[in-house]
Design a binder for these strands. Structure first.
Length: 349
DNA sequence: AATCTCTCCAACCGCATGAAG
DNA sequence: TCTTCATGCGGTTGGAGAGAT
C-alpha cells in the first residue's frame, strides 16, 4: 500500500452514523431483497440510505440477514468456540464459519464478554486449565491441536432463520389488551430481549390496509379485499404512504428495551413523545372516527401473515404499494391528533 | 431517589487482501 | 509492476441498561 494511501470509503460528513433506525433497516432489507448486494459501495445511494457501504454491509451481515440464528449461545456452541479458539486463535471469521447463523462479531463478543472470563476463572482454580489459559492470553494460533468440535445441535442451516412464536403464555406490554383490538402481538426471542411484532389491519372501502412492525421490520401497504385474507406479502421497498408514515409517529407500543419504531433524526423527538400511546386504542379510535361500520376485525393467522423469511417473496397478485390516501383517513387522523395529542416527555402509562 | 460503576454488544475504524485496470 | 478500488477481518469504542452503593 503505497503512494498517497487509500481514499476514505466515503465522505464521513455526508453519511449518517450510529444506531440504525427501523426505517433504515426496512430500506436495506427491502433493497437487498429485490436487488441483492453485488456492490456495497453503490448500495446506499441506490437504496436511498445516508450510510456508507461498509455500514450497510455490517448491518446486513451482523443483524438483518434472514439466516441469522438468534438467541443465546448454547453450552455446546460455547464449548465449540473454546475449542476452536484454542486451535485457531482470534480468527473470528474462521470460527464463525463453523456456526451457521452466527456472525464473527457475535462470536467475538461472546468470547470477550463470557468465555474468556469463564476460562480465566477456571484457571485460577487449578493448573489443569493452564493449557486453555494459554490459548486465551495469546492471539496466535496453535497448530498442534486439531479442532475437535461439533456444530451445535439445532443450528438453523436447514431451517428458517427467524423463528416466530405465538404470544401465548407471555406477559407483555399488551397485558391489558382488549381481545377485540386489531393488534396481534407475537414475540420472538432475540439475543438481548423480546421483540413484539404487531399487526394491524383495517378494511376501508374494499381495501385492506395493513401495517406490521417490530424493531426490524416495519412494512405497510394495502390490497384489494377480494383476495384472501391470508394473502402474504413482501416488504414493499417503495412503500407509499404518507398516511402510514404519519401512523409511524403514533407508535402504539414500546417494549422495555426496544427502540421506537422509527427514529429517523427528523422523527426522533416525535417518536419519543408518542411512543407511549397506549397500545391498540388508536386504531379502534381511528376506525370509529372514520365511520368504518363495515370494518371487519378478522382473526389473522399469524403464521400465514408474517414473513418467515425476509427473502421469501409472497406477493398478493393485486398488491398495491402506491394507493392514494383516502381523504377520510386524513380527516380521521386530524381528529385523532386532537383526541390523542402527543404526550409530554416524562409521561408514563 | 440519585449517582456511580460495570457489563454487554452494535457499530465503527483501520489495515489486509485480492481483483481489476 | 503499480495503483486504485471493493470487500473482509479483527481490534476497539460508545452508549444503553443493569446492578451496586
Amino acid at each position: 500500500m503505497g503512494g498517497k494511501g487509500r481514499a476514505p470509503c466515503c465522505d464521513k460528513s455526508q453519511v449518517k452514523r450510529g444506531p440504525w433506525s427501523p426505517s433504515e433497516d426496512l430500506r436495506l432489507i427491502s433493497f437487498i431483497q429485490k436487488h441483492g448486494h453485488d456492490n456495497w459501495r453503490a448500495l446506499p445511494k441506490q437504496a436511498g440510505l445516508l450510510r456508507c457501504g461498509k455500514s450497510c454491509r455490517l448491518r446486513w451481515i451482523n443483524y438483518l440477514r434472514p439466516d441469522l440464528k438468534r438467541g443465546n449461545f448454547t453450552k455446546e456452541e460455547e464449548d465449540s468456540i473454546i475449542k476452536l479458539h484454542e486451535a485457531w486463535g482470534n480468527k473470528w471469521s474462521k470460527i464463525a464459519s463453523q456456526f451457521p447463523g452466527r456472525t464473527d462479531n457475535e462470536i467475538k463478543n461472546v468470547w470477550n464478554t463470557h468465555l474468556r472470563k469463564r476460562l480465566v476463572s477456571k484457571n485460577s482454580c487449578g493448573d489443569d486449565q493452564s493449557k486453555e489459559l494459554s490459548s486465551i492470553t495469546s492471539t496466535s494460533s496453535s497448530s498442534s491441536s486439531s479442532a475437535s468440535f461439533q456444530r451445535s445441535s439445532g443450528n438453523p442451516s436447514e431451517g428458517a432463520a427467524v423463528e416466530f412464536e405465538h404470544q401465548s403464555g407471555h406477559e407483555s406490554t399488551m397485558a391489558n389488551k382488549d381481545p377485540n383490538e386489531m393488534n396481534y402481538p407475537i414475540r420472538r426471542q432475540s439475543k438481548r430481549n423480546l421483540i413484539n411484532i404487531h399487526l394491524w389491519k383495517v378494511k376501508f372501502q374494499r381495501r385492506w390496509y395493513f401495517k406490521a412492525s417490530d424493531s426490524l421490520f416495519d412494512f405497510t401497504g394495502a390490497y384489494e379485499t377480494q383476495i384472501s385474507d391470508k394473502a402474504e406479502f413482501e416488504i414493499p421497498f417503495e412503500s407509499d404512504c404518507d398516511f402510514w408514515n404519519m401512523l409511524d409517529g403514533l407508535v402504539p407500543f414500546q417494549s422495555n428495551h426496544e427502540p421506537t419504531l422509527l427514529q429517523d433524526d427528523d422523527q426522533a423527538n416525535q417518536s419519543s413523545n408518542l411512543g407511549l400511546v397506549e397500545s391498540g386504542k388508536w386504531l379502534s379510535y381511528l376506525e370509529s372516527e372514520l365511520g368504518l361500520e363495515q370494518t371487519t376485525k378478522t382473526e389473522i393467522n399469524d403464521q400465514d401473515f408474517l414473513m418467515k423469511d425476509a427473502t421469501e417473496k409472497l406477493v398478493p397478485e393485486n398488491y398495491c404499494d402506491k394507493l392514494p390516501r383516502p381523504a377520510e383517513i386524513d380527516q380521521g387522523m386530524d381528529r385523532y391528533f386532537e383526541m390523542w395529542p402527543p404526550l409530554p416527555d416524562n409521561s408514563v402509562i
